[in-house]
């Protein structure tokens, strides 16, 4: 038997008054394919199924979703890693408004990203070549710049569920630290003063859901800890 039972969250705002779960039987021919492949097979049965996808190799961050209760990227999650007892339940990322099926409105997530001013700020006139940076200084950006904005972390964070308008969330904070840690950035003080309120950073309770789900193996909790250290050093 290589039939996989797929249970899918369905909601089309034009026809459904409420979301519901729909069952599909998918013949995987016993292969250990990716969850995204399964979704494509379902879509051949029901072209109305909506989900986002682009690179299909885990670098664009389009297909973040909740698979058997855990957030991750459908394109790099093999069935062997996620299926339990022959069953796969797929839901949209939790905590964000659903547009249709597995597609969520990521507006709040992006707004929090924009809020931390995710761009290098350096008012010193640039040299004719690149700004120099030692390999050691550059190493500090590893584990930070690789974020793909898939929102798996922020939508697995209860603090973000309760206050998505005020708490920056793990993804945004990881990027905040990416610029705080960059030897070329000159806006450290301004960046920190934007973060010292009780919500932006301090709603993090360190439960590390973000670390557990990050498909790129990044550690937002550690970055948040570093921001706290910088805030403390700056204010005492």
């Amino acid at each position: 038997m290589s039939t996989l039972q797929v249970s899918l969250y369905r909601y089309n705002p034009e026809t459904d008054s409420a979301p519901y779960m729909e069952e599909f039987q998918i013949d995987t021919q016993g292969r250990d394919i990716m969850v995204l492949d399964v979704l494509h097979m379902v879509k051949e049965q029901d072209s109305g199924l909506a989900f986002r996808r682009s690179c299909r190799e885990g670098v664009c961050g389009s297909d973040g979703m909740n698979m058997n209760g855990k957030n991750g990227l459908a394109c790099i999650t093999p069935l062997s890693e996620v299926v339990k007892k022959g069953k796969l339940t797929l839901r949209p990322l939790p905590g964000l408004p659903v547009i249709r099926d597995l597609v969520v409105d990521m507006g709040l997530f992006y707004k929090q990203y924009e809020r931390i001013q995710p761009y290098l700020q350096n008012e010193t006139p640039a040299p004719a070549i690149e700004r120099l940076q030692s390999p050691e200084e550059r190493d500090k950006l590893d584990g930070l710049y690789e974020c793909i904005l898939c929102a798996c972390c922020s939508t697995s964070c209860p603090s973000f569920w309760w206050n998505p308008d005020k708490f920056v969330g793990p993804a945004g904070l990881l990027q905040a630290y990416r610029f705080l840690a960059d030897s070329r950035d000159e806006a450290t003080r301004e960046r920190l003063s934007e973060l010292e309120d009780p919500f932006s950073v301090f709603r993090c309770r360190g439960i590390m859901n973000c670390v557990a789900v990050c498909p790129k193996g990044l550690n937002p909790t550690r970055a948040i800890g570093k921001i706290r250290e910088m805030l403390l050093a700056n204010a005492t």
């Binding site: 005020k166 003063s193 934007e194 973060l195 010292e196 309120d197 009780p198 919500f199 932006s200 950073v201 301090f202 706290r228 805030l231 403390l232 204010a235």
Partner: peptide
């Protein structure tokens, strides 16, 4: 910066400390 008037120290950092 999120403004708050009801928390203890007016700053997340002081609350945290």
């Amino acid at each position: 910066m999120v403004t708050n008037i009801t928390n203890l120290g007016r700053s997340g950092l002081s609350d945290w400390l």
